[in-house]
Design a binder for these strands. Structure first.
Lengths: 200, 200
DNA sequence: GTATAATTTGACTTTATGGTCGAATAAATT
DNA sequence: AATTTATTCGACCATAAAGTCAAATTATAC
């Protein structure tokens, strides 16, 4: 059928993209659990039932995988920032929404990974640091806004933000998806503890 | 003089120990800044004006250095736990004292390093995880105590602790000794934010 | 069923770096 | 000054893991 002729090359791309995503997702999980440097390409390959060489059909290098992990995460975080636009009656309420989204991202499947930036070089690192800065500034802005509207206690916004963003990032180290503590409980508790820690 | 005969061999040991400490301190700083795997032994050696081989006169392996970094830190933290015994009118007050000590440890010179546990193997990792567990339990106990005496809001103590301990551990990633924000300011702000986040 | 393009592989090269060793140097001891 | 002991080094080895490539396999198209 003619649809095949049109669909088939399209499917190819889709399947390639899907497999590529699978590679990165699988690697991301391994990186989170064992750390970037303790995860070899052979291991990533094997856990997908592939040979190492096949991996390089989908990615340029190990570094690229790490880079994409970060980008995926920052894309998701940017999305969270965007979806919070116009919501929340004041700075604190907006921040609670955003922080909750962040926590959900970090706990939903093993996607989360914001570590090992030092292992990225050149352009890769520059881009990732830029993305990180962008998120940081967005959060800072909300916090500063909250300090002005009186919903957040006045303090050095940088330290304030580092505190609860640090708690979030550290999740990667100890949180086990599907472990004893559910992602929802963590999200709820973190939002609660964060907000009471800074509300005025 | 006779004192020399007695002092000299003693000095030797002291100097050896001092140099060994210098090696570990220097390495710890590099590890914290660039990450364990991005710091080569040659680099550590060069930054001390030594050759790589000379390093191995003081340490058994790179892994041993990382191990000692952790132990030094946990010794200091144990000390902090110990020095808080009997102090503080209630759980929250005691926790504030302890948390402040921890924050001081993390910000005072580049000593802090509690990451890369995955790069330790066998006995090394077992011991470090045991030490970490010990600290965690001590903190948990204080928090639970505070929840009972009414000074700390009732919640899942594990998550409560992970939150503010995570914030602390993440310091390593972004804090620059001698940078724009002083250790004292951070310590003060962290204790404040931690305690208001959990006080009832 | 043959040709073409997409995947996958085994076997290889390369590289970074941890670690070793015997010899050289410096310091203390007699 | 000679001897022993502590310290340091240059040059080397070992190895793990990243990355490459020509060839084989599998899927798709005609």
């Amino acid at each position: 059928m003619t649809t095949d002729k049109i669909d088939q090359p399209f499917n190819r791309e889709i399947q390639y993209a899907a497999k590529r995503r699978a590679v990165i997702r699988s690697a991301a999980g391994a990186f989170r659990r064992r750390g970037y440097h303790n995860t070899s390409m052979v291991l990533i390959a094997k856990s997908l039932g592939l040979s190492k060489a096949a991996l390089y059909y989908y990615v340029k290098s190990k570094e690229e995988i790490l880079y994409e992990c970060h980008i995926i995460m920052y894309d998701a975080m940017d999305g969270a920032v965007h979806s919070v636009r116009g919501k929340g009656d004041n700075g604190l309420e907006k921040l609670k929404l955003l922080y909750g989204s962040f926590a959900k991202l970090m706990t939903r499947d093993g996607l989360a990974l914001l570590a090992d930036v030092d292992s990225l070089k050149g352009e890769y690192q520059t881009t990732v640091l830029a993305r990180r800065g962008k998120i940081e500034r967005a959060v800072n802005r909300i916090v500063e806004h909250g300090m002005k509207d009186g919903s957040i206690k006045k303090a050095d916004p940088r330290i304030t933000v580092f505190f609860f963003m640090g708690a979030l990032n550290w999740l990667n180290v100890w949180y086990e998806p599907g472990g004893r503590i559910s992602g929802e409980k963590i999200t709820q508790a973190f939002v609660e503890q964060m907000s009471t820690g800074i509300s005025s």
